[in-house]
Design a protein around this nucleic acid. Structure first.
Lengths: 250, 250
DNA sequence: GCCAAAAGTTAGTCTATGCTAACTTATTTA
DNA sequence: TAAATAAGTTAGCATAGACTAACTTTTGGC
């Protein structure tokens, strides 16, 4: 390259730098999605594999390879060819900002606008890239600074702190022990409607009554009802074991 | 082109077609912005010149030429080289959909979230491309189906009807006659703050007391106060003349 | 420890959108 | 009506992001 050309071509440069969205940098929607995905896979600590990222974002691995290199150049990721990526501190902060937006929006839609819980995710998925931090903060304030979204996922604070407790899933709970549902996976509307039907919701107390062998159905009691669900579904329901002794240290 | 390649490359095609945003087509943010701009210039009827569009969107005329051709190919515009564009019926509908989103969002931000009126425009400018029709309808319902946004601009209905009454500006009002402010231009936050300070707000009654020659300041009385403003500012304030005779037919 | 399968990367394209520079059409003005 | 000027267009290029096809590393199994 020989000319004097800089990044960003021309007049709209400044406006594009932060999309008017907030105080900071410049992340585009796709970039925010990559960071969220990598955060979700590595949950703070671990590394994310190219294929996992691709699968989660519904993209080809080739596309991910390309993007990952660019994000690494921007200092958002630590990347070593053929060995997956990790978020840098700056990448992690950006991911948590987006996550906060997403979850506050979900909570607000449900609380203030009566959105059904199986549909808040998709709407938030788009709004999170357009809403300013100020808007998100006003939403949070309006509904009383919630700590979790409608599916039980913790909402990061303005300054990037988030509860990263790892819960076990209903599928891992020992037969005979009880727990409180803290959180369910939020992406599949149909599954959410089904869970609601069974009244498997954050805050509810469940007891595992039996587990059929060979990955068979799990029988549980919840809200004075007995029912059984498949292991795949059970794996999507995270629970906090209830003081039942013999639970610490896995 | 020789292969079997279709528009949209691959798996994400369906999802991209309407961005998940609503029932319809596929308009991207930039496209919605063009349509809004063309609608605003031609106000339903007239044609929009390339340069006007470019100025309004802060783009170069060359970019507008390119986009305009594509929008015409998509049937959203009627375009004749070197002679400006007009919205087709389909383009007009799309523009009004976006306009409805924008104005409902503005009204909602002000009403439900306490957003200051000089800042709702910028936030709505981004959200309008991400919010679904359902969200917008819920917002409208929550604040009681308002008919105008915080600056007095009429909100198109779900089915694309909108009040297109053309008002005269304060600058055009005859000395001695009175009017009610119906609407102010919404894009300049600083101007909005100033107008609010002077209490020149939609719904207020104004009387033009005097107009200095040579495009000089206009003196008016509003809210029992007398004040004068420049003609450029006056031109941004639209008023409905108050039954004062001699007003019909301009 | 070698080799096939799995995982990841590169090369080459594509679309959308924007830009600059150079050119063409319209319009205005003398 | 012929320049001069304004308006609009084309050509060529850039960037972000995604794709396919072909190639390269890693890794898991024997």
């Amino acid at each position: 390259m020989s000319g004097v050309r800089e990044a960003g071509s021309g007049k709209r440069e400044a406006a594009l730098r932060d999309g008017g969205r907030g105080t900071r940098d410049a992340l585009t929607g796709p970039v925010e999605d990559y960071l969220k995905a990598i955060y979700a896979i590595g949950k703070g600590s671990g590394a994310a594999a190219t294929n996992e990222i691709a699968q989660r974002l519904d993209l080809t691995p080739a596309s991910v390879s390309g993007m990952v290199r660019r994000l690494a150049d921007q200092g958002l990721l630590a990347y070593e060819r053929y060995h997956g990526v990790k978020l840098t501190e700056s990448g992690r902060r950006a991911a948590l900002r987006t996550l906060r937006r997403h979850r506050v929006i979900e909570a607000y839609l449900a609380e203030a606008l009566g959105y059904p819980w199986d549909r808040v995710h998709d709407e938030a998925e788009r709004l999170e890239h357009a809403a300013s931090d100020e808007l998100v903060d006003r939403m949070a304030a309006t509904i009383g600074e919630p700590e979790v979204d409608p599916h039980g996922a913790p909402i990061p604070t303005r300054d990037g702190a988030v509860d990263e407790t790892v819960y076990r899933s209903l599928a891992e709970l020992q037969v005979g022990s009880a727990g409180v549902v803290v959180r369910v996976s939020d992406e599949d509307p149909e599954m959410l409607r089904y869970l609601a039907e069974l009244s498997i919701l954050p805050g509810k107390r469940v007891t595992v009554k039996a587990r059929a062998p060979f990955d068979g159905p799990i029988t549980l009691s919840i809200a004075r009802q007995e029912l059984s669900i498949g292991p795949a579904l059970a794996a999507q329901v995270m629970v906090a074991p209830i003081a039942d002794r013999a639970v610490k240290r896995g």
